[in-house]
């Protein structure tokens, strides 16, 4: 399949998903040109691509690959604005891992 599964995770799960494709929803804390820091249950360092259009304070959902240094190499980012309920989004991550059978192989 041309679009692989992208499990939803938070910062504490990064080490379990090294070298895998993941999906992380968080709030943009810092933008530093080529890199950025995301708050998703903890800080996530991201290496951006040219197509990312991030705004500090906005929620963003990024799809990328976790590298050996636990940085997220971003492949696609979707700005989700400023009205995201992070508690609900984090509950989704929890639900997807607890009831994995309907979410991921």
């Amino acid at each position: 399949m041309d679009h692989p599964q992208t499990p939803r995770i938070l910062a504490p799960h990064l080490s379990s998903f090294q070298h895998k494709h993941v999906r992380i929803l968080g709030k943009v804390l810092q933008l530093r040109g080529e890199t950025a820091v995301l708050d998703a249950g903890g800080n996530v360092d991201m290496v951006l691509n040219r197509d990312c259009h991030l705004a500090v304070g906005h929620a963003v959902e990024v799809i990328g690959k976790v590298d050996g240094n636990l940085q997220l190499r971003v492949q696609a980012a979707t700005d989700l604005g400023t009205s995201i309920d992070y508690a609900a989004a984090n509950a989704v991550v929890e639900a997807t891992h607890r009831h994995k059978e309907i979410f991921y192989d």
Binding site: A59, L80, G81, S83, I84, D85, A88, A89, A91, V92, A95, T96, H99, E101, I102, F103
Partner: peptide, 18 residues
């Protein structure tokens, strides 16, 4: 329109599955 609908849907699908 409201991006929280994505979270809502995932949780609803889980609830119905359960």
């Amino acid at each position: 329109d409201d991006n929280n609908e994505v979270s809502y849907h995932m949780l609803e699908a889980t609830a119905v599955h359960l």
